[in-house]
Amino acid sequence: SFQYVPVQLQGGAPWGFTLKGGLEHCEPLTVSKIEDGGKAALSQKMRTGDELVNINGTPLYGSRQEALILIKGSFRILKLIVRRRN
């Protein structure tokens, strides 16, 4: 089963996490790295392996390109929903 975790990061880029996968690579869009001391790490809500399913209220369909555009369009606040295996 899965758990959906809301994450809100503040203060602008860099957000402190790296993505891998996506439709382009025929795999889920997941968090591959969280930078020590970065905003994602400080939130204590994101983990490597989390799947990104929503950015700023926009549902994602797995495209890494789409996710990067939405993330780049976030100035002060980035709201994410990640899906994690229980």
Rank of each mutant, 00 (worst) to 15 (best):
Gln10Leu: 13
Val5Leu: 10
Ser63Val: 07
Lys20Gln: 14
Tyr61Val: 15
Lys39Gln: 06
Lys39His: 07
Gly62Pro: 02
Ala40Leu: 04
Ser63Leu: 07
Asn86Asp: 10
Glu66Gly: 08
Gly16Gln: 08
Lys45His: 11
Leu42Ala: 13
Pro28Trp: 01
Pro6Lys: 15
Gln10Ser: 14
Ser1Gln: 09
Gly12Trp: 02
Leu60Ser: 01
Leu78Val: 01
Gly16Arg: 00
Glu35Arg: 09
Arg85Trp: 08
Lys72Thr: 11
Leu60Gln: 05
Leu78Asp: 06
Thr48Lys: 11
Lys72Gly: 12
Phe75Asp: 13
Gly11Ser: 03
Cys26Val: 05
His25Asn: 14
Ile77Phe: 10
Ile69Arg: 15
Phe17Gln: 06
Ser1Arg: 13
Lys39Phe: 05
Asp36Tyr: 11
Ser74Tyr: 00
Arg84Gly: 05
Asn56Met: 03
Val7Glu: 03
Tyr4Ile: 08
Gly37Glu: 08
Lys20Cys: 13
Ala13Cys: 08
Leu19Tyr: 04
Lys33Asp: 15
Arg76Phe: 08
Ile55Ser: 04
Met46Arg: 05
Pro59His: 12
Ile69His: 14
Glu27Gln: 11
Leu19Gly: 03
Pro6Ser: 14
Leu23Cys: 14
Pro59Ser: 12
Gly73His: 14
Ala13Arg: 08
Ser43Lys: 15
Leu23Met: 14
Met46Phe: 07
Gly21Ala: 03
Gln8Met: 14
Leu68Met: 14
Gly37Phe: 06
Gln8Cys: 13
Ile77Ala: 13
Ser63Thr: 10
Lys20Glu: 14
Gly57Phe: 02
Glu51His: 07
Val31Gln: 00
Arg85Met: 11
Glu35Ser: 12
Ser32Asp: 15
Arg76Ala: 10
Gly22Met: 05
Arg85His: 08
Thr30Leu: 11
Ile69Val: 13
Ser74Val: 05
Leu23Ala: 15
Asp50Tyr: 02
Glu66Asp: 09
Asn56Arg: 01
Gln3Ala: 11
Asp50Lys: 02
Ile81Ala: 05
Phe17Pro: 04
Ile34Thr: 03
Arg85Val: 10
Leu80Ala: 04
Ile77Gln: 14
Gly49Asp: 09
Arg47Trp: 07
Gln44Gly: 14
Ser74Gln: 08
Thr58His: 12
Leu60Arg: 04
Arg47Val: 09
Pro59Glu: 13
Ser32His: 12
Lys33His: 14
Phe17Leu: 02
Lys72Tyr: 08
Pro59Trp: 09
Gln44Asp: 12
Asn56His: 00
Leu60Trp: 01
Glu51Arg: 03
Leu80Cys: 07
Val82Glu: 05
Cys26Asn: 15
Leu23Gly: 13
Pro59Leu: 06
Gly73Pro: 03
Tyr61Met: 15
Phe2Arg: 04
